[in-house]
Simulated assay, not measured.
Amino acid sequence: MKIAVLSSHTSSMFWFRMDMMKDFIKKGHTVIALGSEPEAVWKRKFEEYNIDYRQLCVERNGMNPLKDFRTLRSLNKFMKKERPDKVFAYQAKTVIYGSIAAKINGISEVYPLVAGLGSVFRGKGFKNKIVKTVMKIEYWVACKSSKKVFFQNHDDKNEFISNGLIKDEKTVIINGSGVNLKKFKPTPLPQEPAFLFIGRLIKDKGIMEYLEACKGVKAKYPKVRCLLVGPFDSNPSALKSEELNPYIENGIIEYFGEQDDVRPFIAQCSTYLLPSYHEGTPKTVLEAMAMGRSIITSDAPGCRETVIDGLNGYLVKVKDITGLTNKMEYLISNGEICNSMGKESAKIAREKYDVKIVNQSIMQVMGL
């Protein structure tokens, strides 16, 4: 079969969906990947895995209706020409417009993944309310045009059901994107305590809470390392370089920018942190768990599924800098707990988040 995989963020598709696409190919199917970035940059990278990459006219964070119409037109043109047998889409714009374009062209085998509801969907204010209302209508149309819809946590699924966007029988829960256990393996903890945050530098990820908690920790424990990996972003809540620079210049944070391989950085930390406001299921947390790290994350949709509080890490309230700081300081003073929690994390990753198990669930629903 010919399978189209749609995303409004090419690098996310390359790093987070490659295992899934490779499994599609192992089953004898053809995969065409559509993303936002130029073919000149990405086509050869995808071809190494026998995947045909095409650039899609899509703007991930914009709200310009004319640009969104061009996205729909671009997807409609693709569907009409290629006639894929099945479509897998994730991220808001490709989910919405990919599902609609498929419906227009009589393609019923559409399987969107709602991998977390963004800041617009959960935000407040009059302008946000208008945008949210439009998005609800668009999601309703997308769900109506789809055969099944994947969710990564029950909070997001229940949000869609309670808003009348989808019926329960059309939903499927999967355990995130999974983690490649051959690639991410347990490594020894560093001798000295060290913390790590990996992610796009947007405020909804809890980056400011992490920076402020590190500031408090470093004031009491100056030898503790606080690492940061991730790119700046175009998201409305993106952190600006001038906001980050004081933390770097004052020795609070060691910033390493965007990295193709995060394993060397996970290996340098004793505890992984992600105080995000909402997620689907955070892949970086799964990768840190697979490498045997204790986790501190927020008691928020998507995040709370990864941690059994007190067993493999701790859950803190959203935007709770004091709570985050207290848990960091506790693990600094009780370093032996990081080792036992890390072992529990690795066990949970093996039993629940193995990418092979997750991909098998996806393929079974898609009839592959």
Rank of each mutant, 00 (worst) to 15 (best):
E305G: 05
T271K: 06
K86S: 06
G280M: 10
L311Y: 12
D260M: 09
N175Y: 11
S11R: 06
I308Q: 09
M21G: 00
V262C: 06
V95W: 01
S241C: 08
P112S: 08
N245W: 15
A40V: 07
C214W: 05
V316M: 05
V95Q: 00
P186C: 07
G178V: 14
L211W: 04
S108W: 07
Q268P: 11
V172W: 00
K147R: 09
S74A: 15
D261C: 13
P38K: 00
F69A: 13
K215V: 01
L286P: 01
I362N: 03
I166M: 08
E47L: 09
I321C: 03
Q268M: 14
I348E: 00
K144S: 12
V179Q: 02
S119Y: 13
M18P: 04
K148E: 05
P222A: 02
N245F: 15
L113M: 13
I198C: 03
G292Y: 08
N105V: 11
F256Q: 07
Y97C: 04
L227F: 09
E249M: 12
F184A: 05
K343L: 14
R17F: 15
P190F: 05
N339W: 15
I198A: 01
K205C: 00
C303S: 07
L34S: 01
G335P: 02
D85A: 05
N180P: 11
K203F: 10
P264V: 07
N158A: 10
L311F: 15
K352M: 11
T297Q: 03
N153C: 10
A194N: 08
V318T: 13
K157N: 11
N339S: 15
G323D: 00
S241G: 09
E39H: 01
F126Q: 12
K203V: 09
N334C: 08
N153Q: 10
M289W: 12
G280K: 09
Q91C: 05
G257A: 04
S333Y: 12
L228A: 03
P231V: 06
V41R: 02
F14Y: 10
D299H: 13
D320R: 08
Y330I: 10
Y97R: 06
P193K: 06
G216Y: 10
N235G: 02
G178L: 12
M366S: 08
G216H: 14
P246T: 12
I130W: 14
Q364T: 13
A40F: 03
G310N: 00
E212K: 12
Y111S: 02
L75I: 09
P301D: 02
